[in-house]
Simulated assay, not measured.
Amino acid sequence: MVITVGDSRIGKSTVIKLLIEIYQLRGKKIKVYDHDNRDRLLAYKELAVIERIDFFNKGTDRIFDDLVADDVDIILVDMPGQYIDKICQYIVQSELLEALVEYEWKLTFIQPISHRVDCIDYLNQIIQTTTNNANYVVVKNYHFAPEFREYESKIRKNLLMIGGTEIELAALHRNHYQAMEKTGKPYSQVCQNFSIILFWRSFIFQWIKNFRNSVINNNLAIKYLGLD
């Protein structure tokens, strides 16, 4: 089970989309639960089973049903932003960690970060809640800043000590990103979309490639994200 966490507008949905395509390339059978009501994953309906879910109301039992399903390799969960207290409360009250152990599933939290302090506080609280019962993958999102001083000085050392790892999401020009999103297609298909000029598509292609390489060239990320 891979759970994306982090502040709002930090790149969670972008990371999910990129991961869905990697899972598809690897032949993984995935199930995606999306808390967002803006249909940001609509373009990926043909690549994965995607269901909307509200983590703050009843109905999350569907996730537990998938733990015993034979047709699911990866459960990908997009948690809402700005609700870290409620998310940690959900994890504890639902006994999610205990259920995963019982059914022999592994849990990974993947969190994009920027230069903001809020990202560090968010990650700290997740780690304090789940400790060594989960794996942690930090995504350095260079869209927001060329460096991550708060992360480097306050939490990186501890994260690596408990076995966490890092991958990178390169910066993509805002115009290129918006053009890509407007197509309503999976990112990899945008590279063959002639409505976007070739020069922009080449940058998008390289951006996707860089993210995939960051994952595939990291043995811990491969393991934690269920790609081994």
Rank of each mutant, 00 (worst) to 15 (best):
V5S: 00
I10C: 12
G11C: 13
G11L: 10
S13H: 12
V15L: 07
L18T: 13
L19T: 02
I20D: 01
I20S: 06
E21R: 03
E21H: 14
I22N: 09
Q24M: 10
R26G: 00
G27E: 14
K28Y: 15
K28E: 11
K28D: 09
K28H: 12
K28A: 15
K29A: 05
H35M: 14
H35G: 00
D36G: 04
D36V: 15
R38V: 14
R38G: 06
R40Q: 04
L41W: 12
A43D: 05
E46D: 15
L47W: 14
L47N: 12
A48C: 14
I50T: 09
I50E: 02
E51R: 06
R52G: 00
I53F: 00
I53H: 15
I53G: 07
D54P: 10
N57S: 00
K58Y: 08
R62W: 05
I63S: 04
F64W: 02
F64D: 02
L67Y: 02
V68H: 01
A69S: 10
A69E: 14
A69I: 13
D71H: 12
D71K: 13
V77S: 02
M79Y: 04
C88R: 08
C88A: 09
C88H: 03
Q89V: 05
I91W: 00
Q93Y: 06
E95I: 11
E95K: 12
E98G: 04
E102F: 13
E102P: 06
Y103L: 08
K106A: 10
L107E: 04
F109L: 07
